[in-house]
Design a binder for these strands. Sequence first.
DNA 1: ACAACCATGTAAGTAGTTACATGATTTA
DNA 2: TAAATCATGTAACTACTTACATGGTTGT
Lengths: 183, 183
Amino acid sequence: MSLPHALLTALLERPSAGLELARRFERSIGFFWHATHQQIYRELRRLEQAGGVEALPAEDGRGRKKVYRVLPAGREELRRWVEESQDPRPLRDALMLRLRAEAIVGPTSLPAEIRRHLVLHRQRLALYEEIDARDFPPEKTSRQARLRRLVLQAGIEHERRWIAWCEQALALFEELEQAGDQD
Amino acid sequence: MSLPHALLTALLERPSAGLELARRFERSIGFFWHATHQQIYRELRRLEQAGGVEALPAEDGRGRKKVYRVLPAGREELRRWVEESQDPRPLRDALMLRLRAEAIVGPTSLPAEIRRHLVLHRQRLALYEEIDARDFPPEKTSRQARLRRLVLQAGIEHERRWIAWCEQALALFEELEQAGDQD
DNA sequence: ACAACCATGTAAGTAGTTACATGATTTA
DNA sequence: TAAATCATGTAACTACTTACATGGTTGT
């Protein structure tokens, strides 16, 4: 149950309407917890009903912008959730499954797919590094900025690790192919 | 839709019944794609109906063991899936969200939670390294063994990265706390 | 005969995805 | 005034989770 808490965090950072949240998700919080606009609207209504957020006064109805802000109860709930004990989710990666399957049904064209992933991870890394340079200049050293940078660092390390792994995988496939040619 | 393909892979490695698959998942494929026994039974029935696997002849009925094996159509489907183009899933990590929330509602007891995660990641790393030493001795160099080791290496690197990140996070919190004391 | 365990299964609920619908506002 | 875009919403579906139910086998 993390999406409502992601929304509370985003709304504490800045009160917003649903679509604006959806767009902000695409370029910051969503890097670590993706959500579609349908999910976001549904959760915002639930949060409002639970008293965690309120919509700023406006004539309601379909198509009318509704700006939400966090209520004290929502802030308290977020704090409670941050301190909660939650085990890390196990790794879940389809590419690992596919590699294991390829070990049995292969050889296949999986190396081409790994090359494609390598490009995507490099692009994502470049994006993160750009954000890092733009949002966290050396002189900015507030508690909040340093903690947010720590989150971004996790993303950067994540991408670097996958880039290294893809390269290692491609090297192995090349070696296996050459060994296979000699048979 | 990866679970049916994970099951096809496991069944190609060795024909099994549902509960046996569930147990094997807990100590190998499940490291990369977790599933409960309810999910596994359901998917096995679907796979059987779709003609991807067959149950070995046995009187059926509740409580009777049903051993499944992969049919040619299942093997073909697995191969097709391995070669399919699939974008990498975006990173999804609640601890990152919690850290970002703590930057706003903190200070909290989140560092204690990070220490707890650190212990869990170290345990998981030790388990992976044990499996690596046991299942992949230097002399074992078949194509299948080398590819399966590559999968395990991804798990090992994953755990090492989180261990390093947790240590970095704890160091930062300590530094922030000392700086705070001086105010 | 009973307990412990093996094996499969049902039911209900939550979370996430995909496709589509509808009203309001801006702009050409 | 028509098209494009903004903004919110509905509906149907799939995947996953949690709790519980039921029958079969083995050991004492």
